[in-house]
Design a protein around this nucleic acid. Structure first.
Length: 349
DNA sequence: CAAACGTGGTA
DNA sequence: TTACCAAGTTT
C-alpha cells in the first residue's frame, strides 16, 4: 500500500475520539483549529469545551464582548488568537449573514486564519482538496521521505508543500489531513517515536537510514530577552487598581496591576526614586507594606523577572484615569496573564 | 523575511 | 535546569 492508503486505513481504525471530530460544523472546526494553533490537545481541549458551552453558535461568539472572550481564553496564551477569533466572528455575522464562508480564499482572509488553518477548515468542514501543513506534517513527511530541507525557510516550506500536495487524498482531504496530523501526534512524535507500530514503517526513509532523530531540520530559534516588571498591588480600602494592556506588546487586552518596568533589576529603594513612581502617586507618599519576587516567567522570546509590591493608600485616593479602581473581590472577573493569575491565587484565594 | 507572540510538558 | 517545541499567524 502507498503512503496515503496506509495512513487512512490506520486512521480509520486507530484515531482518538476528540470533541471536534464529532461535528462537521465549520464554526466548531474553526474554533478547534484556532485553539489548537501551537497548542497541545491536552491543553486546548478544555478550552474548546468551555467555548462551545459559552458560545454554542457563531452568533453567540460575535455578540459577546472582547473582554468576555479574553476571560475565557485566559491562560491559553497567544491572546491575539482570541481577539482575531472574536473579530472574525463579528465579520462573518455582518458580511456573510452569519453563514461561515465555504471557499478556501474566503476562509483564508479571516483574521487569525493562515494557510494551515484555512486548509484544515476547507478540507475538514467542506471536503475541499487543500493539504494542511502543520508541525506534525513537516515531521511525518520529512521522516517518511528523508527530505532534510529546513522546515522554517521559504525554500524548505515550498518543497514540503509540494510533497504534501502530492500525497493529498483528493477524494477525502479532510480525513487525510487529520490522519497525517494524528500520526505525527501519537506515533511519529518528536522524541522517541513509536516506529514499531507505525503503519508506514516498511517504507520510511528515515527509519531505514536511522536518521529519525535528525529530522525534521530546523534552522533558527530566537534568543530570549530579559524584562523586569514591578507590579504594584495597591490596597485602597476595599479596592485596588488595574489597567488593560494595549497593543504593540505582550498580553494585549489583558489586565494587570499598575506596572513599572525597568531595564534592569533594581531595588525597591531605588524604584521609589523612579520618575514613574512619583508620577503615579502624584504627591502622596504611599506606604509599602511588603514585596515579593515570583519565579521567572518564561515566554517563547522573553524571560520576565517580576516583583509584586504591596502598597497601602488612603481610601479616597485615585490614580490617573489610565487605571481602573476596582473592588478586590472582583479581581478574578478580569482576564489576566498567567504570571498575574498565579500571584492572585496565592494572595487572594 | 525575521521576530514577536504564551504556556506547559518532556527529557 | 536548560532546551525543545506544540493542529501557526501577523507584521
Amino acid at each position: 500500500m502507498d503512503f496515503t492508503t496506509s495512513l487512512i486505513k490506520w486512521y480509520e481504525n486507530d484515531h482518538r475520539l476528540l470533541p471536534w471530530r464529532e461535528t462537521s460544523d465549520p464554526y466548531f472546526i474553526w474554533l478547534s483549529e484556532v485553539i489548537l494553533q501551537q497548542t497541545r490537545i491536552d491543553q486546548g481541549t478544555n478550552y474548546y469545551i468551555r467555548f462551545i458551552e459559552h458560545f454554542p453558535t457563531l452568533k453567540d461568539l460575535a455578540s459577546a464582548s472582547e473582554d468576555e472572550v479574553l476571560k475565557l481564553w485566559q491562560g491559553l496564551g497567544y491572546y491575539s488568537r482570541a481577539r482575531n477569533l472574536h473579530f472574525a466572528a463579528k465579520f462573518i455575522l455582518n458580511s456573510y449573514n452569519g453563514q461561515f464562508p465555504d471557499t478556501y480564499d474566503a476562509i483564508l482572509s479571516l483574521k487569525g486564519v493562515g494557510e494551515y488553518t484555512a486548509s484544515a477548515i476547507a478540507s475538514i468542514a467542506f471536503n475541499l482538496p487543500y493539504a494542511a501543513i502543520d508541525g506534525n506534517v513537516y515531521r511525518v513527511l520529512s521522516r517518511f521521505t528523508g527530505l532534510d530541507a529546513p522546515i522554517d525557510t521559504g525554500e524548505g516550506k515550498k518543497m514540503f508543500r509540494e510533497l504534501a500536495n502530492h500525497f493529498l487524498d483528493q477524494k477525502n482531504p479532510g480525513i487525510y489531513n487529520q490522519a497525517v496530523m494524528e500520526l505525527g501526534a501519537v506515533v511519529c512524535t518528536p522524541q522517541s517515536p513509536d516506529c514499531k507500530n507505525c503503519p508506514l514503517n516498511d517504507s520510511c526513509v528515515a527509519l531505514r537510514d536511522k536518521t529519525i532523530s535528525m529530522l525534521p531540520v530546523k534552522i533558527g530559534r530566537t534568543v530570549q530577552r530579559n524584562r523586569y516588571f514591578n507590579y504594584l498591588d495597591i490596597t485602597s480600602g476595599s479596592h485596588t487598581f488595574i489597567h488593560q494592556r494595549k497593543g504593540g506588546d505582550i498580553w494585549h487586552g489583558l489586565f494587570e496591576f499598575p506596572l513599572i518596568e525597568t531595564v534592569a533589576e533594581i531595588g525597591v529603594d531605588e524604584l521609589i526614586l523612579n520618575k514613574e513612581w512619583s508620577d503615579l502617586f502624584d504627591g502622596i507618599k504611599p506606604v509599602i507594606t511588603g514585596w515579593e519576587r515570583v519565579p521567572v516567567h518564561l515566554l517563547s522570546h522573553l524571560k520576565i523577572y517580576t516583583r509584586f509590591i504591596r502598597i497601602d493608600l488612603p481610601e479616597e485616593f485615585d490614580l490617573s484615569e489610565k487605571y481602573r479602581k476596582v473592588l478586590k473581590k472582583d479581581i478574578f472577573k478580569f482576564a489576566v496573564p498567567r504570571l498575574v493569575e498565579r500571584y492572585l491565587i496565592n494572595r487572594y484565594e
